[in-house]
Design a protein around this nucleic acid. Sequence first.
RNA 1: GUGGUUGUAGCUCAGUCGGUUAGAGCGCCUGAUUGUGGUUCAGGAGGUCGCGGGUUCGAGCCCCGUCUUUCACCCCA
Length: 462
Amino acid sequence: MKPSLVKGTRDFGPEQMRKRHFIFDTIRSTFRRFGFQPLETPSMENLTTLTGKYGDEGDQLLFKILNSGEFAATLTDADLQTAQQPGGSKKLIPQLAEKGLRYDLTVPFARYVVMNRNALALPFKRYQMQPVWRADRPQRGRYREFYQCDADVVGTDSLLCEAEIVLMIHEVFRNLGITDFTLKINNRKILAGIAEAIGVPGQEATLSVAIDKLDKIGQEKVLDELRERGFSDDALSQLEPLFASAPEGGILATLERLRQWLAASETAQAGLAELEQMLTLVQQYGLSGSALHVEIDPTLARGLSYYTGAIFEVKANNVSIGSVSGGGRYDNLTGAFGMPGLSGVGISFGVDRIYDVMDELNLFPEGAGQITRVLLVPFDEPARAVALPLLRTLREADVAAEMYPDLTKVKKMLDYANAKSIPFVVLIGSEEVQTGLLSLKNMITGEQQKLRAEDVLTTVSA
RNA sequence: GUGGUUGUAGCUCAGUCGGUUAGAGCGCCUGAUUGUGGUUCAGGAGGUCGCGGGUUCGAGCCCCGUCUUUCACCCCA
C-alpha cells in the first residue's frame, strides 16, 4: 500500500512547525495581553449545532461523521430509492450522521456560551486556536483542514471592542513582520443604508454579494449581475457614487462622502457614526497616521449570514492569497441556541494563509522557534561520562542541548550539527578527558577554543 | 458542486515525430581524511514515468477512467 494524504490536508515537518509556532506564539501573546482567556472545544459537534448557521453553501461544506455501529439499520427501501435520486443522498444524512467536524470556531463558542451562561462573567472575552474543517475544493491558500485563531468578546455592545480588534490586528501583523497589509472595514448598516438609498430596502444581501466582487470583475460586470437579479436601471444609476475613486484625504474624506451620499438613510448614518466612533477610540489609544492600515471599503461584504455591525477583513498586499483575517459584529449569534439578545464581536486569523504570505515574502525571522544550541560530541565511553554532567548543566540553564547518541566518526557528528543548524559543538576525546579542557567549536565561524566545562555555559549563552 | 490544468529520482526539472538500456543539477551514501563539518576531488545508490485500463509491432509521449496538484466560478481563513 502506498501511503498518501487526504486531499486538502498537509503534514507539517519540523521546519514548518518552527515557523508555525512563531505565528501561533505571536497571536497568542497578543490575545493574552488584551485580556482574552483560552478556550478549546471538541473537534466534532452535533450536526444540529452546526447546520443552518452558515447558509446552504456552508452546510454543503460540513464534514459529516458516519454514525457508529449499525448505521444503516433503520433505512427503508423507500429511503434507499430516495437516496438514489439526483441530489437525494443528503436527505439520508440525518439518519446516517449525527456528528460533524467543526466548520469554524465562532459557532462552537456560541454553543459554549449558551451552555455556560450562568457561570460566565459578562462581558466574556475568549481566544481559541484550533483546526477547522471544510469540504471545499482545495486551492492555493485554501485547505480542507486549517487553523483559525479567534478572539471574541460577547455580552457588550461597546464600540471599544471593535476598536480593540483594530488594535489587535495591527499588533499581530506588526509583530509577525507583515508591514504591508490593509485592514478593510465596513459596517453592515452602511450596506443596508445603500440598499435603502437606491430604493431597494432589504435587498442588501443580494447587493453585497455582487458589489463584493467589484475589485475582481469590475464595475460593468457588477452592474450586469445586479440587473440580472432584477435591480432597475434607476436604482443602479444611484449606485454611481460607490464606484467613484477614493477621494483624497483618506478615511475622513471617505466617511464624509458616504455621509452625503447616504444622507437619506438613518441606518447608514448610524453605521457611519459607529465607524467614526470606533476610529476615534483607536486614535485616542495612540494608533494613527502611517501606522494605521485602515481603509473604509463600502463594498466589503463578507459572511453576511450573521454579521450585523462592523465587518473586518485583512489582506496582505502584493501576494495573491485571499484574506488572512476576518471578523465582525454579530448581535444575535446565541439566539439560535435559545439565548437571544447577546451581542458579540470577534476576529479570526488564518494561520495557514499567514504562513503562505510570510513564506512567499520571506518574512520569517532567522531564529524563529527553538532549535538546539549545543551539540555534545563524545568520542568514546569515558568522554560520555564527562559530557553528561555538562549536558545537564546546559539544560538546567535553559540552553537547548543534545548529545550525539552513537559513537561514530567525527565527520558524521559534525554533519549532523550542520544539518540541524546547531551553532555550537563541544568535542570531547581522550585529550579533553585528561586535561579537563573541552573543545568548543563555533560552527558558523569555525573557531575552536579550549574551555573548562563551567565556562562552556557562559560562552554559548552569550 | 461546474469547467480547465498538473503529475518523470528525496527536491527542481529535461526527455525531439510514438522507437534500443529514461537523463541533468542539487541533495544523499562511501572514500581521499581512524580527532574536525561547510570547500574540493573520485566513486556509488536511488525510477511501477501518480494509479488502472485501452490503442499500437512498440507508450514517459496517444485515448478513457481515477487520484493528486493547481486555476476560474461559488464561497471563504
